Simulated scan of single mutants.
Amino acid sequence: MPPAARPPLPPFDEASARQKVQAAEDAWNTRDPERVAAAYTPDTVWRNRDEFLQGTAEVVAFLTRKWERERDYALRKSLWAFGDDRIAVRFQYEWHDADGRTWRSYGNELWEFDELGLMRRREASINDVEIAAADRCILGPRPEAERGADLPLR
């Protein structure tokens, strides 16, 4: 069975690009690898930090490992730029490791979509900064009142 369309579909305007970014944020905050992977083409290609992945099976395995290591993961994404079938985002997420250390991860992603609105390419560059647990400010999914808010530099 072919994959179902994932609106909004390209070509993107600012409103549809923002909607796509928020949908991605919402999905990633579920920490459900299968749900997240459903937004990608079956042959999707990724670069995430220093890992290269291809296909949704590899994406599911990667996300499973990620969320086993990055505990209490909570994410915010912000639209940076968009084109017909491409979107660039900035993001921040916070988490803690098995040793109890708390981290804020900063990054940028480049996305490319097919005609069904599925992501066929994702490139992510990410840096981690250790923070005090008391400095954590991203504690769960974004409240409705904060949707569309930009990210602070730190």
Rank of each mutant, 00 (worst) to 15 (best):
G83M: 10
R121L: 09
R47D: 01
A61F: 05
A132D: 15
K20V: 01
E130R: 15
V89K: 04
H96Q: 03
D97Q: 08
T56Y: 00
W95L: 09
A27F: 06
N48K: 05
Q22P: 00
D97T: 05
D84E: 15
E94Q: 15
D13T: 12
P152R: 12
Q54G: 03
P152V: 04
K20R: 10
A23K: 11
S16K: 03
R101D: 14
P7Q: 03
V59N: 05
A27H: 00
E144C: 02
G83I: 01
R142S: 00
R31G: 03
G140E: 05
E115W: 05
Q54M: 11
A57P: 02
A145S: 13
L153H: 12
E112F: 00
L151T: 04
A23Y: 09
G117N: 05
R104N: 11
G148D: 04
A5S: 10
A74E: 02
A145G: 01
W67I: 06
Y73C: 09
Y40K: 01
V36A: 09
E144P: 00
D84M: 02
N29H: 02
V60F: 05
N127C: 08
R65K: 14
G140K: 09
G55H: 09
Y73T: 02
P3Q: 15
G100W: 11
R31T: 11
W28F: 15
Y40G: 01
P11H: 15
L110W: 13
I131F: 08
G55T: 12
E130A: 09
W80M: 03
A17G: 06
R120M: 09
H96V: 03
G83L: 04
F52P: 00
A37W: 03
D50L: 09
F91K: 05
L9R: 07
W111M: 07
A134Y: 01
D43T: 13
G140N: 06
E109K: 06
P2A: 13
D43K: 01
G148Q: 10
E123N: 07
D114M: 07
R31I: 02
I138M: 00
A5E: 11
F52Q: 02
N29L: 08
V60Y: 07
C137D: 14
R35K: 15
L153M: 10
A74W: 08
Y93N: 14
E34A: 15
I138Q: 04
G117Q: 11
V59A: 14
P7F: 06
T30L: 10
K66H: 11
K20M: 10
Q54W: 01
S125V: 12
A24W: 13
S125K: 09
N48I: 15
L153E: 15
N48G: 02
P33M: 04
A27P: 06
L75Q: 14
I138W: 03
L118E: 04
P10I: 07
T102I: 03
A132I: 04
W28N: 04
P42I: 11
D72C: 02
T64A: 07
A39S: 14
E51N: 12
G140W: 05
A133P: 07
A149K: 05
E70A: 13
W80I: 06
P42E: 09
Y93P: 03
Y73Q: 01
A81P: 00
L110P: 01
